[in-house]
Amino acid sequence: MIRYTNLVRSFGATRALNGLNLEVRTGEIFGLLGPNGAGKSTLINLTAGLLSPDEGEVSIGGNPAGPGGGSRSMLGVAPQALALYDELTAEENLRFFGGLYHLAGRDLSGRVDWTLDFAGLADRRKDRVKTFSGGMKRRLNLAVALIHDPETILLDEPTVGVDPQSRNAIFDSIEKLHRGGRTIVYTTHYMEEAERLCDRVGIIDHGKLLALGTVEDLVGEYGGRSAVVVQTGGRETRIPTDDPVAEMIRLKQERRVRGLRLESPTLESVFLNLTGRHLRD
């Protein structure tokens, strides 16, 4: 379990985190959803011990996070900024970082193979990272986080720039990790990812947690009404309603309709309702 209590962290005049309280449960995939600059990476960095809080505290499994914490070898982190040695091959990167976690010999080789498979890079293992595409680097960045089979995994926007097919493969693998009992914190500003992967989602903006719960709960509570979108001529009209089916039948009878579309509330609408802004501007 990761517990954040009254967490405050500023950079100069910017309050990146502003009194955040949160508990991530052991064994869940927790999605942290928020726009650019919301404070997601700051939260990840505090968890990884890369930053220390101005106020409040972070604890992982009861131990305080940070340089002194003994929890570091149980933690795997994929930083948002790629962190790889360009001049080394994919395999050499994995071997090096694995070595830092005291892996060696057959254990290390086994883990290297596993993570390369995980990232779909087995056929590029002998290539230098500088010859990789952006998405491949991103996947390797994720693989390195998993080299020592950590119990708690922090993934900071791990799929930016990854093509849909590889992304789906990664999601499958992450779900496999989840079934294996790992705790995963996953930040993103793609609500589709949060909806697909996460047991629970926290919505964060301006360093504060605005809402917390399962996707279903959040949509039910903050999503607002569904809407029916009617196309007449060249125009689209959006009509919010509590009973979309009845509304559609009514519209069909009343007007000369070229098309009808149902918009159910999503995390996007949850965010819009909570902040008055769209997730991506």
């Binding site: 011990g49 890369l50 340089p67 570091r72 962190a83 790889l84 360009d86 970082f97 830092l100 005291h102």
Partner: peptide, 14 residues
């Protein structure tokens, strides 16, 4: 290049 972050996350002292 960010690799220092990785080193700092690993169980290593400064």
């Amino acid at each position: 290049r960010g690799t220092l972050v990785r080193l700092r996350i690993a169980p290593l002292s400064r």
